[in-house]
Design a protein around this nucleic acid. Sequence first.
DNA 1: TCCATAATCTTGACCGATTCAAGAAAAGGC
DNA 2: GCCTTTTCTTGAATCGGTCAAGATTATGGA
Lengths: 152, 152
Amino acid sequence: MTTSGTADEPMALAAERLRTAGMRVTAPRMAVLMAVSDSGGHLDADTLRERAQRITGRLSLQATYNVLRALTDAGLVRSTQIAGHPTRYETERHDNHHHFVCRACGSIRDVECAVGAAPCMEPRLPEEYDTQEAAVTFWGLCPGCRAAAPVS
Amino acid sequence: MTTSGTADEPMALAAERLRTAGMRVTAPRMAVLMAVSDSGGHLDADTLRERAQRITGRLSLQATYNVLRALTDAGLVRSTQIAGHPTRYETERHDNHHHFVCRACGSIRDVECAVGAAPCMEPRLPEEYDTQEAAVTFWGLCPGCRAAAPVS
DNA sequence: TCCATAATCTTGACCGATTCAAGAAAAGGC
DNA sequence: GCCTTTTCTTGAATCGGTCAAGATTATGGA
């Protein structure tokens, strides 16, 4: 099981993606990229390291941070910082979606940008400001925690 | 200069605000509240401590955190966490405004909620989600940094 | 006015997330 | 297959913030 077969395909794909991005293809990078890809997103560095380790064996946390930085810079991965949580990573889909964060359990859910081309992208600011991006974070209770909450 | 005169008025006001909020009136609390109030907002705990110290003399960083937590819980102060920055504090104005952050210099500017009653408050989420708040952060370049930037 | 009590403040240790630094390993071009 | 440069490993350090324990102090009642 080295060059073909079902198990190796995701890895070959990861390698291809790295190569296309002009990056060196290394085991840690493939492993982390795979971990981010098949996770459904929103995992922190330590969790990703753990998952990547299952794929590639030993992997330092520092390397995980290095790889995530490199992947983010290359546009393959998107990082999101949520107040009170460590940085989360997900596959970059270039759709500028937002996030809903449950105040009770901390779970994160993607939220499509409400009105197509982002109404939030046009702040009431003087002309001289160069607004490049709008990050919206919705806070509240997810269905599960809402049901379990004392008052509603 | 103990009970009247111009210099003591802000302090008397701070004491009054604390009392109204049902909080004990202490020197650290008055000092921090004053520091937050006349700063124009968006200062971090350490800077606020420094400024509060000028008013009240000795003040530990831990006390500053305690006070800020208490003031925030009491609704007198609003805290904002911006990715890559320590928590910032400003006077709570109950207007749910947002923030513009300059990627170059880190400065923060208030942004009124674009379309009145917050268009961002209505995410495309299933009914079962209880969305309580939407925090919008605009990223870009402030006028000064934009002018200094290599490409525009 | 003074006291008792509970809240608050000070000091100092501690923690999680992340970065810095230096040497070892390995990817990729010739 | 070697050489150079990038990347990875290990270990220390930093930053923002919290925990814990004992000293102070604000406030309500005697």
